[in-house]
Simulated scan of single mutants.
Amino acid sequence: MKRLIDFSASLIGIIILSPIFIITALLVRVKLGKYILFKQERPGLNGVPFYVYKFRTMNDKRDSFGDLLPDSVRLTSFGQTLRKYSLDELPQLFNVLKGDISLVGPRPLLMDYLVLYTPEQARRHLVRPGITGWAQVNGRNAISWEEKFKLDVWYVDNQSLWLDVKILMMTVLKVLKSEGISQQGHATIEKFSGKKNDTAM
């Protein structure tokens, strides 16, 4: 049932939001260059990798050695606006359509984190990841990794259609209020180090 809802809702969303897709893509092309989409491998259901898609929010500026500058330097004001209203996440509706992710579920993080999780934290991969999730509507990037993973695992144990509807409604409010977009001192949030007492402001 959830997969059917995901497929139907993402297809309808893509059709209805197609003007926003087109306008955003054109703006990204003009302001950030020819590569419109950001593609990165992420772990999906049971940790199986897939490629997640987003609209680019950063430029490709590099230092004298050819290495990319820190995210905080490459994140443009235009990119910040896209993130503020979660417009950069729109291409993930195609990931939902394909079945890589769900509308609601734990956010797909970096592949590098897989070896850092405790067995309890790794349970977040027992369900499909999502565009939004219980952790996103309860702090997003403003809470610690430890808190975020506890919320993800809570969702795994308590998922239901009603909870998904509740999370989607809360997501709309969070986006409108632009809450929890980034951690203090970071473009988004500091990388997960695997420390069990990892804290964030």
Score class of each variant (00 low, 15 high):
93 L>K: 03
90 L>K: 00
105 G>R: 01
57 T>N: 11
31 K>L: 15
81 T>F: 14
69 L>M: 11
92 Q>Y: 00
71 D>V: 04
87 L>R: 00
70 P>Q: 06
30 V>Y: 07
105 G>E: 03
56 R>H: 08
46 N>H: 12
115 V>T: 15
50 F>K: 00
113 Y>D: 12
39 K>Q: 15
109 L>M: 15
36 I>R: 09
24 T>S: 12
78 F>I: 06
100 D>N: 14
115 V>N: 15
18 S>F: 08
66 G>M: 11
65 F>Y: 15
82 L>D: 06
22 I>F: 12
55 F>K: 01
64 S>D: 15
106 P>A: 03
115 V>Y: 10
35 Y>W: 11
89 E>I: 01
63 D>M: 08
103 L>I: 08
41 E>W: 09
32 L>E: 06
113 Y>V: 09
114 L>A: 09
97 L>V: 06
68 L>F: 12
63 D>C: 09
104 V>P: 10
60 D>H: 10
104 V>F: 07
78 F>C: 09
92 Q>C: 04
62 R>M: 14
109 L>V: 15
35 Y>K: 14
30 V>M: 11
25 A>Y: 04
44 G>H: 04
89 E>F: 02
22 I>G: 07
64 S>N: 12
39 K>T: 12
38 F>Q: 02
100 D>K: 00
105 G>C: 06
59 N>V: 03
99 G>S: 10
93 L>D: 02
92 Q>K: 02
86 S>H: 13
80 Q>K: 14
48 V>W: 00
110 L>E: 10
47 G>C: 08
43 P>A: 09
113 Y>Q: 11
32 L>A: 07
77 S>D: 13
57 T>P: 11
88 D>T: 05
90 L>E: 00
119 P>L: 05
29 R>P: 04
100 D>H: 10
30 V>G: 00
102 S>L: 02
56 R>M: 07
82 L>K: 07
49 P>F: 08
77 S>L: 13
107 R>N: 05
24 T>A: 07
38 F>P: 01
110 L>A: 14
64 S>K: 13
91 P>M: 04
61 K>H: 08
48 V>P: 00
99 G>Q: 07
89 E>H: 01
30 V>K: 14
50 F>N: 01
86 S>R: 13
112 D>P: 05
93 L>T: 01
83 R>S: 13
45 L>S: 03
57 T>Y: 08
85 Y>V: 14
117 Y>C: 09
24 T>P: 01
21 F>D: 02
36 I>D: 09
80 Q>P: 06
22 I>V: 13
87 L>M: 06
31 K>V: 06
119 P>K: 05
71 D>L: 03
104 V>D: 08
65 F>Q: 13
85 Y>D: 05
35 Y>F: 14
58 M>E: 05
53 Y>A: 07
31 K>S: 06
108 P>A: 02
75 L>S: 10
116 L>R: 13
112 D>E: 15
97 L>F: 14
44 G>A: 07
56 R>V: 10
34 K>L: 10
103 L>R: 02
65 F>K: 15
50 F>W: 04
28 V>C: 10
110 L>G: 10
101 I>G: 00
70 P>S: 08
30 V>D: 00
48 V>L: 12
84 K>A: 13
47 G>A: 07
52 V>M: 12
33 G>M: 05
46 N>D: 14
108 P>L: 01
62 R>I: 12
83 R>E: 11
87 L>F: 12
